[in-house]
Amino acid sequence: MKIQVLGTGCAKCGELTTRTEAALKQLNLEVTVEKVSDIREIMAFGVMSTPALVVDGKVCFAGRVPNVDELAKIIAS
């Protein structure tokens, strides 16, 4: 499993990284969260609003920071 957080480095992106890590802990998954901050790489995902979460190359959502429970649900599915 590969998890990436797309964001240019604002407060919300940091928050999403923290919450994603918490959600992974909740699911007992040992996966490191990769941060993607290069704007061209972000654009390559077709994302226009940051932060966004990418699981195994698929964009799950963009432009918001869900809570830990919702994140766990998203990652699990």
Partner: peptide
């Protein structure tokens, strides 16, 4: 439209 100024660049590029 939901917008945060930290997304200004990707949004600009996307448009």
């Amino acid at each position: 439209t939901p917008f945060c100024s930290c997304s200004a660049v990707p949004l600009f590029l996307g448009f």
